[in-house]
Design a protein around this nucleic acid. Structure first.
Length: 646
RNA sequence: GCUGCUGUAGCUCAGUGGUAGAGCACUCCCUUGGUAAGGGAGAGGUCGUGAGUUCAAUCCUCACCAGCAGCACCA
């Protein structure tokens, strides 16, 4: 007879098997109304799940974090029923809850359009209002396959076929509609509530494989209540405002045009931003023991054949044919083989290791057209690339050193948080298992030493070695891999890199491929979104504008601007015959961090009225003090560290 | 690359089978005003490219290019 232990430690004894529903009712009518599902010994299950033995039970109500997932999963089922009701002949496939919502993939000859959303949503509301019970039923595998085949649901039948034999096959019924589903679900369709919205249609490959059929996916979002939904929709709008493509245009940072798809035209202001980031990185690498190099853009095809890239990535390389010489050159898609060439010049000693070769390496890759995205995913980009040639013993300490540098650099750019993914051996791969064991454990060990929390990304390593990926998130919640560290035993072998060890014999070095920003282009895109264009002073392309109130102050304004410029500030003057209100507005919208306003008063007293972006306060200070203060604040973080504020 | 959508002035966008419009920006004039839009005038587009249908195409059809969303890809 089950004894149910509740989260507060109290125990309820029952003299016959019960379900969550009866337990909730026994506790109280309020809980019985609020309970949507339960955690049975830590596992989220239906409220109607029978409990036959002693167990820990926690009820999940709308307030609990698990509720969102349930609401979204149930919403996906409701969506599927609505679609099958409105568009007979449509097959269902899968429909999970995802971050912020849910989707369902349908197989239908005719694709859905956003115009279909209104009728589908209306039908969904009907189904929700009907409040049919979700009823779980466990069935025999063969019966289930036959059942779905007879309904013409060949995708569902295929899913069951591929489920491991140990897996219980369960169906969920909501009224007349049935879906194959592992569950759990809430009590009835009414529990989904009113706070949902269909968001977009898109194609998606069956089982995520591009060789399979393209299904029609409908995305939706769902929340506990209207307030949450509104807040989410509002957040999306805000995110759109900080899209780097929009801000890039507004702030005149860069542009793209069709004759150079996937390549960026950096405008003067955008290039200032780029140069500041590059100068900063150069200092950080230099002071971390890296040696900067520069290698060729174009190399003979033979070279890429030797490195193995021609075989694997030929389709993604830009090729140049030289008719006169009957040669084929390829624009470099990466820098590592070139760095190996530098390593190979002369005879290397173990005393030189670790040798850290860095390059702001400009690379070209013919990315698939659908992958291009603003400046975040382009075909011409520059990596803050470096290769560390070292011994196996040095992998761990070098990794620790790298992670520390990376975290410090991300912090300087305003990113306190980032995710780390550990990608281990893929199939197919180069190198034997013993080598992989060594590489993976070295990396794991290094993560432990460096205090890095990572999530495992199984089978996603590079073909030559395991890797760490450092992921930053953009304004719209999309994740972008920026930093990376890859352990490589293969390339040194392939390109015959070696050093003379302490024992006088020749050895293969290990190569660590690593990048912190990844590509400048992508990183700057994320940076623009991170700050919504309101950069900290050290990065701002235009750091200050000197704006006059009356034209009598023009001469003094020029003097102020000259003083700012002499202190290394990027400054512009605004001597137009606009009112000061208009000038404030213009430069605020342009995200200029410092507005120095000068009128007759300031000219007479040799002061400036400083107004900071985002503040209405005016700070009238003597010119010399303003220069000193701003110059200090505009100092890049690495240069101002340890320095006392003036 | 795949599915769907989009492409009109520098930007944001409206619009029609009879070769086009707004706001902002831009130029000029008036205005010298103390912290988020002072007023007026003007200039600006072979409606993404190419073909087809039509008496007539920016509008309809097809192809291509580019972009957007998602999927796949990302050494």
């Amino acid at each position: 007879m089950p004894a149910i232990t509740l989260p507060d430690g109290s125990v309820r004894q029952f003299d016959a098997p019960v379900t969550g529903t009866t337990v909730a009712e026994a506790i109280g009518p309020g809980l019985a109304r609020a309970a949507l599902a339960m955690k049975l010994d830590g596992k989220l299950v239906d409220l109607a799940t029978p409990i036959e033995r002693d167990a820990d039970v926690r009820f999940v109500t709308r307030k609990d974090p698990e509720a969102l997932e349930l609401i979204r999963h149930d919403a996906a089922h409701v969506l599927a029923e609505a679609v099958q009701d409105l568009y007979p002949g449509t097959q269902v496939t899968i429909g999970p809850a995802i971050e912020n919502g849910f989707y369902y993939d349908f197989a239908r000859n005719e694709p859905f359009t956003p115009e279909d959303f209104a009728p589908i949503e209306a039908k969904m509301r009907e189904i929700i209002a009907r409040g049919a019970k979700f009823e779980r039923e466990e069935v025999d595998r063969q019966d289930a396959i036959r059942f779905f085949q007879e309904k013409g649901e060949k995708y569902k039948a295929e899913i069951i076929q591929d489920l491991p034999p140990t897996e219980t096959i369960s169906l969920y019924r909501q009224g007349d509609w049935v879906d194959l589903c592992r569950g759990p679900h809430m009590r009835t369709t009414a529990d989904v509530g009113p706070a949902f919205k269909l968001m977009k249609v898109a194609g998606a490959y069956w089982r995520g494989d591009h060789r399979n059929a393209m299904l029609s996916r409908i995305y939706g979002t769902a929340w506990r209540d209207q307030k949450e939904l509104d807040a989410y929709l509002h957040m999306l709008e805000e995110a759109e405002r900080r899209d780097h493509r929009r801000i890039g245009k507004e702030m005149d940072l860069f542009h793209l045009q069709e004759e150079a798809a996937g390549a960026i035209f950096w405008h003067p202001k955008g290039w200032q931003l780029y140069l500041k980031a590059e100068a900063y990185m150069r200092r950080r690498l230099d002071s971390s023991g890296y040696k900067e190099v520069k290698t060729p853009q174009l190399l003979d095809r033979v070279f890429w054949e030797k490195s193995g890239h021609w075989e694997n990535y030929r389709e993604h390389m830009f090729i140049a044919r030289i008719e006169d010489e009957d040669k084929t050159l390829a624009v470099k898609p990466m820098n590592c083989p070139c760095h190996v060439q530098i390593f190979r010049q002369g005879i290397r000693s173990y005393r030189e290791l670790p040798l850290r070769l860095a390059e702001f390496g400009s690379c070209h890759r013919y990315e698939p057209s659908g992958a291009l995205h603003g400046i975040m995913r382009v075909r011409a980009f520059t990596q803050d690339d470096a290769h560390i040639f070292c011994t196996e013993e040095q992998i761990a300490p070098e990794t620790v050193r790298f992670v520390e540098l990376l975290a410090s650099i991300y912090r300087d750019f305003g990113f306190e948080r980032f995710r780390v993914k550990f990608s281990d051996r893929p199939t197919p791969r180069a190198g034997d298992d013993a080598t992989w064991d060594r590489a993976e454990s070295a990396l794991r060990e290094a993560c432990a030493t460096a205090g890095v929390d990572y999530e495992l990304n199984p089978g996603e390593g590079a073909f030559y070695g395991p890797k760490l990926e450092f992921v930053l998130r953009d304004a719209i919640g999309r994740d972008w891999q920026c930093g990376t560290l890859q352990v490589d035993f293969v390339m040194p072998e392939r390109l015959d890199a070696e050093y003379v060890g302490e024992d006088g014999a020749r050895h293969r070095p290990v190569m660590l491929h690593r990048a912190i920003l990844g590509s400048f282009e992508r990183f700057l895109g994320i940076l623009i979104e991170q700050y919504a264009g309101r950069f900290p002073l050290w990065l701002a392309p235009v750091q200050a504008v000197v704006a006059t109130i009356v034209s009598d102050a023009d001469g003094y304004a020029e003097e102020v601007a000259a003083a700012f410029a002499a202190a290394g500030l990027a400054v512009e003057t605004d001597l137009t015959n606009q009112k000061i209100n208009a000038k404030v507005r213009t430069h605020s919208l342009a995200h200029v961090p410092v507005l120095a306003v000068v009128g007759r008063k300031e000219a007479e007293t040799r002061t400036v009225a400083l107004r900071r972006l985002g503040s209405q306060a005016q700070d009238v200070v003597p010119l010399e003090e303003a220069v000193a203060r701003l110059a200090l604040e505009a100092t890049p973080p690495d240069l101002s560290r340890g320095r006392e504020p003036a």
